[in-house]
């Protein structure tokens, strides 16, 4: 194995070993995604029954699909973002950063390892919820086809960008900023069009929403699921809005580049201030 890959594997192994020895951490992975899915699933199921009974066939099913897709896909972004940020925080909590950064591990190799762990954490958290949604509500997240993978990929990249921003703030402000790891992306939920179209937002907030990759993903997701019975501007079921995916991808590249620059700058600033040794204090 090449030395760089081995260093990345070393950090991944460090986190896998941690999870192997800590069942609360394993439980926490799937706890919130599963509960979110259950709450929203039953809510959506209730509305589906009511709307279905009202005679608007298909509306209830489409609404349920949108809600559950929204919940599960947003959990992809949340779990990915938290996975990376919490991985970094684990090094601070264990006061291990001093050892890590005097090894030949490059900062970008640490980020690569945290990205691998964020993917594993996301899968460990969201997969059980996806399977449970299928078992309880016969809801198949992947029913629209391979395009869902593109949605997921875009939301993961957004999660990494937000996380690198959070890690940069932790490097700047110390462990006192760790609460951001759990809150920043939640704060973007209202602007991400997870459960409703951007058009619902007041006009002055729409530019904020359109600047987020997630808004484009969820607009695309609703179109794919089949909103033919939802609203006057509906597109036919199964339509893939490639321009929304293109916007999401372009915005993701821009935000990721900005986050990388911010991280590089704050890492250098932390070395100037000596924060890498004292950040846990």
């Amino acid at each position: 194995m090449r030395p760089a890959l081995r260093r990345v594997w070393g950090m991944v192994y460090r986190h896998l070993a941690l999870y192997r020895r800590s069942w609360p951490r394993l439980l926490e992975l799937a706890y919130w995604p599963t509960f979110q899915m259950l709450i929203w699933g039953f809510t959506a199921s209730f509305f589906a029954q009511r709307l279905g009974n009202g005679g608007a066939a298909g509306v209830g099913v489409a609404a349920m699909g949108m809600l559950l897709s929204g919940v599960l896909l947003w959990e992809v972004a949340l779990r990915t973002q938290m996975g990376l940020a919490v991985g970094f925080l684990e090094e601070i909590w264990s006061r291990n950063l001093g050892h890590v950064f005097v090894s030949p591990l490059r900062p970008w190799e640490l980020v690569a390892a945290l990205i691998v762990m964020s993917v594993l954490r996301m899968l460990g958290g969201v997969l059980p919820a996806v399977l449970l949604a299928w078992a309880l509500y016969a809801f198949d997240l992947f029913a629209p086809g391979p395009v869902v993978v593109l949605f997921i990929a875009n939301l993961m990249v957004m999660g990494w960008s937000v996380s690198l921003g959070v890690v940069s703030l932790i490097l700047r402000h110390g462990a006192g900023a760790e609460a951001l790891a759990w809150t920043v992306l939640f704060g973007l939920t209202p602007f991400s069009a997870v459960f409703y179209p951007v058009a619902v937002l007041p006009a002055y907030l729409r530019p904020v929403a359109w600047a987020l990759p997630s808004s484009h993903v969820f607009e695309g997701m609703r179109a794919v699921i089949g909103p033919d019975a939802i609203g006057p501007d509906a597109i036919g079921p199964g339509a893939i809005l490639w321009h929304e995916l293109a916007w999401a991808t372009g915005l993701n590249l821009a935000w990721l580049a900005a986050a990388c620059l911010l991280f590089a700058g704050q890492f250098k600033a932390a070395r100037t201030r000596g924060a890498l040794l004292s950040i846990g204090e």
Partner: peptide, 16 residues
């Protein structure tokens, strides 16, 4: 890292 065993810790640094 506190929760890792001594062997696991040494393995991590052997990889690094």
């Amino acid at each position: 890292p506190h929760r890792l065993s001594v062997t696991e810790n040494l393995r991590v640094y052997a990889h690094l």
